[in-house]
């Protein structure tokens, strides 16, 4: 089992990278909405629902005091989508 500093040192850069990718995807979505509107595709409501799901997921992932494992909560959340 790793120590807390080891967890951070081992996974900080990888996590930074993953968060940047998610942020870039959200920016990409906003640009697309500006250009095409949120109903730019036939799957308008479904698209908004998925984005909403991702926003909820980010809040769960960032929760400093979760009541259950974040991964469990996220998988359950995505199962509802």
């Amino acid at each position: 089992m790793l120590t807390p500093p080891q967890v951070v040192e081992n996974y900080f850069l990888e996590s930074r990278h993953q968060i940047l990718e998610i942020a870039a995807m959200m920016d990409r979505y906003d640009v697309a909405v500006q250009q095409h509107g949120s109903h730019g595709t036939a799957a308008g409501p479904a698209t908004e629902q998925k984005i909403s799901l991702l926003r909820k997921a980010l809040a769960i992932a960032a929760d400093p005091k979760p009541t259950q494992d974040r991964t469990v909560a996220l998988l359950e959340l995505f199962a509802t989508g």
Binding site: L13, R16, H17, E21, A24, D27, R28
Partner: peptide, 15 residues
């Protein structure tokens, strides 16, 4: 792979 730009982010900037 991790520490600089990614292919997707690069295309975002190109756009």
């Amino acid at each position: 792979p991790i520490t600089k730009c990614s292919p997707k982010r690069a295309v975002d900037m190109l756009e």
